[in-house]
Every structure is written in C-alpha cells, then in structure tokens.
Nucleic acid binder design. Structure first.
Lengths: 239, 239
DNA sequence: ACATGTTTTCGATTATAAGTCGAAAACCTC
DNA sequence: GAGGTTTTCGACTTATAATCGAAAACATGT
C-alpha cells in the first residue's frame, strides 16, 4: 500500500440573499470563473490549497479575503469532505467544503472574475463543485429550521417582513410572517430592539425592529420528538 | 506559502449498545490500545492512513476489517474533519472521522488489544480522539430523532421493549415505549413483521415483532417548524 | 381449571407546537 | 379626515407528542 503526497484544499459555498428590496429576493452563491485549463470558462467555488501551518477555518477566511476580496462573512462552518481519487485531474486533491453566509443588504465589491449566481439558475460548474453547492444548500435549508443560523443572512436589525423574505428565498417556499415570528420568538432566537422602522414612501404601519439574540451558532430545536421530559425547546449548546 | 506533504487518515467512531439482555444496556465505543509511542497505553479510534487510490468510505471499511476484524457495520457515515496542524506529533496528518453503527445482539470477535468501552466511562484517549467521540455521540443522539438511523443499532427483528432499551441507552435518558412506537410508526420508520416473540421464562404477553422499513439512511423529520404547507413528515431522501 | 404475576399493547386524555385567517393598529398621501 | 398600505396581534384549527391506565396475552403454581 502506497502513501504518496496528497494535497488538501478548502472550498467555500458562500450564500447571500440578494435583491431583497428590489424585485424578487433570491438565494445566491459566490462563484469564480476559471481563466485557465482545466475546466476553463466554467465556474468554481472560491478556495484553494491549505497551507502547511494553517487551520481549515483560517485557510478559508484567508482565501476568501485574498481571492475574492470578501471579508463580510458572518458565519463559517465546516460541511463535508470530498475525496474521490479522481475528482480533479492530476495528482490527488482532497477537498473540505465550508458553508459561508453573508448578511443581506451588504454588497461587497468583487473582482472582475467573481460573481453572484442564483442557486436556482447555476452556470456550468467545474469539477465536482455543483454537488457541493447542492449539499451546502440542503444543509442551509435544514439548519434554518432548528438553529439560529439565520443571523448569518439577516442584517443586524430587521423588520419581520424582511426576515420573512430572507427565509423564503433561502428555503425556496413561502413563509408566513406570523408563524415565523412566533416560532423564532418562542425559541428565543430573535428579540425586539424596542425601536421601529420608518415606513416606506407608500406608508403603512411602521414595523417593529428585531435582532438575533445571539450571533453565534446555536441549536434551538434538535428534537421534535423523543425529547427528555421537561426540556421542551430549550437551547442546546454543542458548538 | 509552502505546501509540503500532508498525510490523511480516517478514524471510525463505532457504537454499539451492549448488555441489552443482561444488566443495564449501555452505549459503547470500540477502542484500540496503543502498544507503541507516542501516547503508548492510551486508547485510540480504529483507522489509519488513506491509501492513494482509496475512497474514504472504502478506506474505513478496509481498516475496520484489517485492524479490528470488524465486518458487521450496518451504517457508516462521514462526520467531520480534524485538521489542527499540531493535532498529532510529527508531520501533519488531517483526519476525517466516521460514525459507525453495529447492531445490538451481535458480539463480533475482537483482537486482544481492542475493546468496547461505555461512552459514560471512557479511558484516557490518545491525541484528539476524545473530542471526536463526543462529537460523534452528539451527532448520533441528534440523528436518532429525525432519521431512521436506529436500524444501525437494532437487530433485524425486535420487540418494542428492546428498541426502547436501545434508544434509551443511546440517547442517555428514559424513553417511553408507547411514544416511541407511535412516533416511529407514523413516520413509517418501523413496520410490524406480523410475527410475535416467544415470551420469556417469567411469562408475559408475547411481544409483536417489528423491523425497520428501510435499512438505508433516511431523513424522516428534518423540519419540526417552517415546513412548506402540506408536506407534513414525509420522507426526504438526501443520501 | 383457575387465580396470580408479568409483560406488552392499545385507547383516552392532556399538553404543546404549528398553521391559518381576519380584524385592528399605525403610518402614508391626497 | 378619507382612503390606501403595511404590519401586528389575537382567535381558532390542526398536527404532533407526552402521559397514564386499562385490557390483552402469556407464564407459573396450586
């Protein structure tokens, strides 16, 4: 059995809900178009080789800053390892994927070769990056319902209608604001700031502003069923 | 920035509920005692270096068969990557952990240096293997409630009281059999075989036997809240 | 055969959480 | 102040889970 040199790379699936105020808000991924062979012209995830003394998270942060000039990542989380021996041509490269979230109203400047793409309309992608995006999206959808991970997509303060739009875009189906408010409030995920937003040009009742109680990842409802008695819907910290 | 040679290893956290019939059933992990430096005498997870042309899952299966002579793994699932540069002495090794499950009544023969250890009473462990076990346990506990992963811990056919004991041991708190039956039956996770067990020596009503409907990993209840309307508790395949 | 003890199963009830809907509140412009 | 707009809140319905106790189905011993 041989153990040759195996390289390791990190790849980030960075999501943001875009066009929140404008037309239809949609969940987007940050992609980068390859200028060189192999897979020239196809789009790939930001990332790259892990340096010798680097931790994985450090490496992702560095590469996002260096390669796509992105520093506004509110949440970063390890996802999965992709290690099929021939997933990329040439010598073997094992990839660890990360989920990254950028809050919504921000519009960070990007280099010329990087662009946001709606997850519902992805361009041809390089290597195995497409299944990576699909996996990350599935994880995001799942975690929105039982964690406070929404803080990574929402601004610091927000109206409930904005949060509904963000959740709708990220989940891919309509979300009821009343229900969202009650569920998130009960779990202590969001709390009112006490202030209200200015009504828009067309009027309307001014919206109460909310914030996420914590901006650290937390599990809020790991168990729908089979919960130990008397521990209904509390906070379970397993970060 | 330098990119030296980095090795990659796979490590398996294999769980089994032991002493099901005897005294108190408890969740155990399979560990292996190191005979050589470093960390001599401490217990470590089974696993080892990834071969050049090997996929991760293949590698885990191979190493479990070779090193601890274990072939009865009913479920194997990738968990996380541990990559701190100095997690092991010497040149850098990146580890991918796996969750493995062995059905309950089986008592596979083991080499002399490997042994089952109750998760509630773990011996001193080598390197960063202890946090790996804790992480895997947390994941198992979580997944028992919203997937059919229990098939990996239960025998092919079982009475509900046995399944209750298995879930209790794995979850770490008492589980009500009535509730377990109703929840798992509604989700279609278990189904009656039509046969009944022989009553024990002390008598008692003979138990209906059940089996897990599928022995492939499935998510059964990803969403307690925020579910799209009309999609209550169906099967979501994301294997 | 029948009473007694044991284990499992099942139904009835309660508790908790989520989904739906419509009315009222609070702002705008004209 | 009338009409339009948006948000908020309460009331009701539905879905799911937890609890509990009675009944079923076996064994053993007399």
């Amino acid at each position: 059995m041989s153990h040759g040199s195996t390289q390791h790379e990190v790849l980030a699936v960075v999501f943001q809900v875009r066009d929140l105020d404008a037309g239809k808000p949609a969940l987007n991924v940050l992609l980068w178009q390859r200028a060189m062979s192999p897979e020239r012209g196809k789009w790939s995830l930001p990332g790259g080789r892990l340096a010798d003394d680097e931790d994985l998270t450090t490496s992702v942060r560095r590469q996002l800053a260096e390669k796509v000039d992105l520093r506004e990542v509110a949440h970063l989380e390890q996802l999965a390892v992709f290690a099929e021996p021939s997933r990329v041509p040439g010598s073997r490269v094992i990839a660890t994927t990360f989920l990254g979230l950028v809050p919504s109203p921000a519009t960070p400047a990007l280099p010329a070769d990087t662009r946001w793409h709606p997850v519902g309309d992805l361009p041809p992608m390089a290597f195995d990056h497409r299944p990576m995006v699909d996996d990350a999206h599935a994880r995001l959808v799942a975690k929105l319902s039982y964690t406070n991970i929404g803080f990574g997509l929402a601004p610091g303060e927000f109206a409930l209608s904005q949060l509904r739009d963000i959740y709708s875009a990220a989940l891919g189906y309509p979300v009821d604001a009343t229900n969202l408010q009650r569920v998130l409030a009960r779990r202590g995920v969001i709390s009112p700031t006490g202030t209200t937003a200015h009504p828009g040009p067309t009027g309307g009742r001014p919206a109460k502003l909310y914030r996420f109680t914590e901006s650290r990842y937390r599990v809020t409802d790991e168990f729908a069923a089979l919960r130990p008695p008397g521990t209904s819907s509390g906070f379970l910290d397993l970060s």
